[in-house]
Design a binder for these strands. Structure first.
Lengths: 190, 190, 190, 190
DNA sequence: CTCTAATCGAGACGGTACGTCGCGTCTTACG
DNA sequence: CGTAAGACGCGACGTACCGTCTCGATTAGAG
């Protein structure tokens, strides 16, 4: 939750400023690694005073999370059925289609300089979610934690590859690959 | 290749200093993310003058690579058979056993703050290697690039998990999981 | 002259606000140097909105002058007889008695953080006044400017000392000292 | 005593840098009030990196004191005889002559923006010195503290006036005025 | 075993980004 | 519809780290 939140009521100016900052961050992420993006560059790209940045976020990481956290939650919601639905293939298509809708955002987040951070956060959230949903106390051949970590990471890797280099490949095809390479083996292991 | 290289002939003092620097880097990596490790901290931990660091490496990234590159090459050499040998299960065991031998090193590199950097470098090297070995002009169901990216990342994820949290699990077991979750599906896809 | 002046006619609210601001300034001056008093602190101490300050004064210096200028004029009016009256001793007593009446104000102004500013302004005004009154084209042993500067500064120094540390000393005594140390020598010089 | 002092042993570079900083401070003091001189301006004028300033002084006040304190001590040493010697007139001449020798320095310190700070420090030091020398337990007509405060301030005022506006006036003349206006009345009071 | 050249410890320095604070302006939401 | 609250642009602050540089003081390894 962003800083300076006044009971969720934001001045119109604040809304505008945050939108500008988030846009600037996304734009810069497409160009260089997160660590090398300076707050000054963000402020400049956002056409916003340098100090103003800190009136909204304590550091650039907070801006990234403000950007990403809602999206992560949404994505995880779409990914959960992969491992619970009967029609894994269809779930894969649905997941990829969702990412495709927000292609620009996810390309910046997953193929840009923030990828490692996003990946870590997604894996963490997946773990939390999986433990909550829990399944039966695991009589599977490998620990739940390992399977979640693996599956999340692998799904992201494949999506990232597709966003980065496989734009020519149709959604159905990448979804099928995802299904065969990751989802089915993981389910078989459970 | 490190700086100050005098035809590959190193003064005894240089050898000592570099060893100290590498040891310090490994020790620090276990505690905090690579980005937050300062050259000053490395020099201090290595009991070495600050400027001395720069006589050996242009920056801390170079030190990390000097540390890691030989290991990466070695690891890739051990990993290649996974996808070529008949006995994938045995290859998995061999790979994991190798990692286990150098547990301290690989734990620092794969579970510490440098993990994203190492991962990226390993994936890159894998791709280079795979394209060089390059099987027949691919009649497989998914692009070689994708399979390499996926497989490398997945193998690393599983090894990292094992080093981080699965120390209780015997080598054979984690190797078997690796085989079932990653290697066989990838081969099936090829 | 303060801002927002509407032909010298002030809304009752404006009068109240300015009084609050002036009171706050005086209170703060007793505690810390003028330069370190922030407009925010003044507004807060005055229980007034931050922006409201600027509706009354362009900056904190203007508030100080609004506070001080009338008093300075009054004080100078009382001080002028020192150098013109026959009974210098009585004039000294009158001057000190006047300061004593407004002890709180003058203590804040002369011994607090604004002292250097006040001193400079008083010396300036003295000079202006002296040149206006300007005796005969000076056949004295030292320049009028020097004598005025010296005398003003010295009178202030003595009054400030009395306000700061000499509260035990009766008005007559400090007045006598002032007379002997400053007034008589200055007149003898003229 | 300046910062970073290593047993009084200074690197040649440090000596150079401090000299540059002090020169820059003096130059700037001649132009604008101390409070409005920025550290950035000092560093730039001294042709020195901004951060380097802080390696030598914690703030601009410390630089000013480093500049002034030795001079203050020296000046006080020259001023002490004023109140102890038989020949007050000669002592006045000696004092003014000393100031005249270092005219540039003292003009910057006493007529520039740092004047209030210098004045305060000088008065403080005078008080310390006077209490140390401390004549007989005072049977005088006014408190020693008051006389010291007055005399120091008055001497400074007269010197400052001379440096600021009275350059045409010969040393002997201003010394005589100083003697008549301040020294003799103060001694008479003691 | 000696001498000479390299390496080293120490740390000052110019530079750049940080995050904070205060000013004075200008917009906004609310009464 | 006016006014307080406070967001904003600006720019200085003091800090941290980078990578360069100069000093002497060791110390290795060639002769």
């Amino acid at each position: 939750m962003p800083d300076g939140d006044n009971n969720g009521v934001l001045d119109a100016r604040q809304v505008r400023t945050r939108a500008k900052l988030q846009g600037a961050m996304l734009a810069l992420l497409a160009e260089e690694p997160f660590e090398r993006i300076t707050v000054r560059a963000i402020a400049e790209a956002a056409q916003v005073g340098y100090a103003t940045f800190f009136r909204h976020y304590p550091d650039k990481g907070a801006l990234l999370h403000d950007l990403a956290d809602d999206e992560i939650t949404e994505l995880l919601g779409r990914a959960a059925p992969l491992f619970t639905a009967d029609d894994t293939r269809g779930s894969c298509v649905a997941l990829i289609a969702y990412v495709a809708e927000r292609r620009a955002l996810w390309r910046a987040l997953l193929t840009g300089g923030a990828a490692p951070i996003l990946r870590e956060r997604l894996v963490d959230q997946s773990r939390v979610l999986a433990l909550k949903l829990g399944g039966p106390p695991s009589e599977s051949r490998s620990p739940l934690e390992l399977r979640v970590t693996y599956a999340t990471s692998a799904v992201l890797e494949i999506i990232a590859w597709w966003l980065r280099e496989g734009e020519a490949m149709p959604i159905e095809e990448i979804a099928a690959i995802l299904d065969r390479l990751v989802i089915r083996p993981t389910l078989a292991e459970g």
